[in-house]
Design a protein around this nucleic acid. Sequence first.
DNA 1: GGCATTATCCATCGGGCGTTGGATTAAGGA
DNA 2: TCCTTAATCCAACGCCCGATGGATAATGCC
Lengths: 214, 214
Amino acid sequence: MPRRRPGRPRRDDQRPTRDLVLAAATALFAERGFDAVSLRDVASAAAVDVATVAHHTGTKAQLYDACFARVFTAEREVLEAAGERARAALAAGPGAALGALHDLVDVFVDFLEDRPETTALWLRRWLEPHRHGELDQRYAAPLYGLVEQLLAAAAQRGALVEPTPHVTVRSLVWAVHGHVVALAAHGGAGARERREFRAFVHRLLDALYPPAGS
Amino acid sequence: MPRRRPGRPRRDDQRPTRDLVLAAATALFAERGFDAVSLRDVASAAAVDVATVAHHTGTKAQLYDACFARVFTAEREVLEAAGERARAALAAGPGAALGALHDLVDVFVDFLEDRPETTALWLRRWLEPHRHGELDQRYAAPLYGLVEQLLAAAAQRGALVEPTPHVTVRSLVWAVHGHVVALAAHGGAGARERREFRAFVHRLLDALYPPAGS
DNA sequence: GGCATTATCCATCGGGCGTTGGATTAAGGA
DNA sequence: TCCTTAATCCAACGCCCGATGGATAATGCC
């Protein structure tokens, strides 16, 4: 049971201030990018003073990193859970590899559609050249490795050798990012777009790893 | 023959000043983004005073738009020329559709690999939500329409109906963007990455639109 | 109740930003 | 040759930024 720590309270302190700040900052950073968001913007969105932001999250760069880590930890948790289920399905029999792969992709698409700020932050990070090493090793590589294992299993299943799993996974991921960006462009409705994209991805997986009945 | 216009000359005026400024600004905007680049940065990179930048390109937003238009006009010209060739090949006989499609994709990949700033500016533009309408109508739609026509022809050729050409093209384009970003991440060498990506794309096209011998 | 600890806000500092007015230099046209 | 036009630079203005020092209020512990 986390009791309140000492300190002057806000008028309305339902959520911890740090969470409030991180949530507000994440939304702003995702929408406008690092340099277009001022700490005063963040403070105003979180209804706190700018010095309070600094008190909880340090410098602006540290705040940005914290937002990034928060969003991508959430993504990794969801994908790792889905990966665990996929592995379990795989253990039940090698014939289930393709189905498990489809399920995993669905989870990924669902997640990014629900949290488009994840896509926005990913893209913004990729556009910072000096961060690529860190991005690759800490965030991208583990997730990609997971999907590559499933691809390899699916390839064996379909009696098809996958020569470049890394390229395949990356292309798939970027296609999803493009889908999310396009969804945001059309105002958020786009139920038909979502259906069409899922159909496309599944058709693509089937084409690359033909099911047994082919 | 364009004679020199009046005005105080620079020490070294081989290229028109406006071109110098636009080139320098494009490189900087692609690398760091709109807000992280100051007009003084641009002026310094172009070896010109900041007031000269303003004199030639107006406000910072106008300068950004000019860079954008310049880069995407170049892209459109290359793709339209390639599209013209593809259409000509198509006219020679419907059997050439798939080959023409492969060629067109190669041209696209070559272009973006050679000019990665195009990818950077595309991605940065897509991340500006209020620009989506303009982007779609003025830049993306014409290019997509061209490729969709070729896809439709290829689909007929392979006796395969393409249900969502727009989704297919978009996913392909974003996969290429992802490839270019990954290339930039690995320092620019990556000859193997380039080979693998081309192989993947062609394999993907063959899988979606199986050639006759299948 | 006294005290250390923590959270919050106010005020301010130095600096970089986009933009502009105006002086200076050089070319072309009469 | 004189005048108009255009290109360039210098200097400055007002504004907003990120960061910080310090005052104040509320909590938990003794």
